[in-house]
Design a protein around this nucleic acid. Structure first.
Lengths: 348, 348
DNA sequence: CCTCTTATACTCAAAATGAGTACAAAGGAG
DNA sequence: CTCCTTTGTACTCATTTTGAGTATAAGAGG
């Protein structure tokens, strides 16, 4: 094996144009029945490019939009992308991350306003992290927010959100009609139907990113005009709260991935305390999936697959009959190739 | 919304150390019952860093190891990561990619031998692409190879590969025993059992990357010593064919992802001709999954879920009774949120 | 005691799954 | 042509897994 030697030595020309890799974390937790994501508000220099150590002069703009914890990947300092991410999150929020999963790498031109001002091309690597309890993070100014604040149309726990038919559908239909050419119109209509489940198509809880991207492309979301350097139109209904850069896109990716993953991997337990009641577990899954589940069947599923085991302890603060406490059974990981909390059908 | 303006202007310091983003494609096709991946052999300058337009002086080293088509991301030339990848693949193989999916971004220090020679840190973005027929690609020198050439332990179609118990297991056990400390030994043993399904644990066809990474860490795979600058030990059994850089790792990711995806998304049809028999479809799925399936049940599944529809035509070159030809029913995408070819249980 | 609330056991029909059996329809050997 | 081999395709049947309930248990608070 001599392939290393068969390659040309340095110095080699770097590809034209600078690239910076941004590491971004969607840190998720569930508190009661609220799924939360950790945001930072104070925009450092740090967050732009250089890292955020210069705190004194670093604060630019008193109140930026909500942002995910993030920072640039520094090859000399970071052994892996993961470790770089952990370092940034540690510095910005004082959280020690446990479960971390890489989501996607976005490199589109024109999704970052800094670029038009001569900044380097930013390639964003998005991560999903799960933390066990929504303790208020320490350093900097970080806040836990209900993730449905950014995606109100994704929460179906109280039934189909009215926003979908009242606002989103008419606006998207308008956008589809505005396309040039019959085939383009058709294609848009099809995308809208599949993503949002209009016109008889099924709603899939996992297509969070598809839906957000559609709203971005149709300029229904505040990030779209902003990235173009245009003012946000005040007469448009705000579809969820906007975020810094492409952070909402990353959060959408995180939600979709997590919703998919709970169905075939026991990741929910990363969000649960060591011992919990089955209803607590169910509420957590429901919070993430944005759907209500059938209680008895959920129980049956979770117990029969061997995902949990009884602790023998009881929880009495339930408001009714005390519930038994359960714990995650680690052994399932060995027994079943894909154990997970499948959603046992929607309620009603 | 004024966040763009609230950010500091250029010039900003770039993070220390150079980064190059490498775009790598695992291009997969199935021919008969052989799953194939497209490799390039001739290593251009191109492939290292600068692009490969200089063909005359570009050929370095007559015969490098198998490599995936790849090239660096060039922010000035490439609008998105995807389009950069398509461009490189087009130039190196003359293939126009259709279905392309991003897999993962690897940025570990020390996985690229060029780095130790003063090269920049290379962050690899891996892609999976599916192409319909294994027509021999045109430009450059590219070859289709059975993907099990790189992962012989992944093909269970003829039954459990003997390699697993005869070679891999004893070597991994040795590695586990060599760990310092009881808990580390335990942890290794557990990882080995879960990844390879030893000791009663279930084999999961999707954990291709887990298995490869384990073999890499235990230095059972030729890339491991090579990346350390050490010679490959000749007395070690070669576990599959090695590839350039981290390409085998990317291919492992591609295999795992594809194996997972066929179960819940109708991606197989990206590999099928417009019209096919059910046995052809089954052989394709089996080739990817590395498992044999129950024929009658496969049929039932595929027909009942509405994934295919009859064309009315017959295929007579089957060797037996002529089979009816089917085509993919695009409408399922609308009807079901997650239509896919679930593996209806192993044979026997 | 009653009532409210939540927990948990059990039932039952419908659908999906795993494993076959049976028979149909070609080509080739004789 | 007939028989045999090789697929292809329809059906069967027991078992499991779902979806959707009903019924009952066990606390708190009046």
């Amino acid at each position: 094996m001599t392939q290393a030697r068969s390659l040309p030595r340095a110095p080699e020309p770097l590809p034209e144009g600078n690239v910076v890799i941004g590491l971004n974390a969607a840190i998720v937790s569930v508190s009661g029945d609220e799924p939360r994501v950790l945001t930072v508000r104070r925009v450092h220099h740090a967050l732009a490019v250089d890292g955020g150590t210069s705190d004194a002069a670093g604060h630019v703009g008193a109140e930026g939009p909500d942002a995910l914890p993030f920072g640039p990947f520094e090859p000399t300092r970071h052994r892996t992308l993961d470790s770089g991410l952990r370092q940034w999150v540690g510095e910005q929020t004082d959280l020690e991350l446990g479960y971390v999963e890489q989501l996607y790498t976005f490199g589109d031109r024109g999704r970052d306003p800094r670029e038009r001002e001569g900044g380097p091309r930013v390639v964003s690597v998005g991560y999903l992290a799960l933390v066990r309890e929504a303790r208020l993070a320490g350093a900097g100014e970080s806040f836990w927010h209900d993730w449905y604040r950014y995606f109100p149309w994704e929460d179906w726990r109280q039934g189909r959100p009215a926003l979908l038919d009242r606002t989103i559908r008419p606006l998207l239909d308008l956008w589809a009609k505005g396309a040039t050419g019959m085939s383009e119109r058709r294609e848009r209509a099809l995308r809208i139907a599949t993503a949002f489940g209009f016109g008889g198509a099924a709603w899939s809880d996992e297509r969070v990113l598809d839906r957000y991207e559609l709203l971005y492309q149709s300029a229904l979301v505040a990030e779209a005009p902003r990235d173009q350097g245009e003012p946000v139109r005040e007469d448009m209904p705000a579809l969820g709260t906007a975020m810094l850069f492409d952070h909402r896109r990353i959060l959408a990716t995180a939600m979709g991935r997590l919703r998919g993953k709970i169905k075939y991997r026991p990741v929910v337990f990363e969000l649960m305390p060591p011992s919990f009641t089955l209803l607590q577990l169910q509420r957590t899954v429901e919070a993430l999936a944005g759907q209500r589940l059938h209680k008895q069947n959920f129980r049956r599923l979770v117990e029969q697959t061997g995902l949990v085991e009884r602790t023998g302890l009881r929880e009495s603060r339930t408001g009714g009959r005390p519930a038994e406490q359960f714990r995650f059974r680690r052994e399932v990981l060995l027994e079943r190739p894909a154990p997970g909390v499948r959603l046992p059908g929607r309620r009603r």
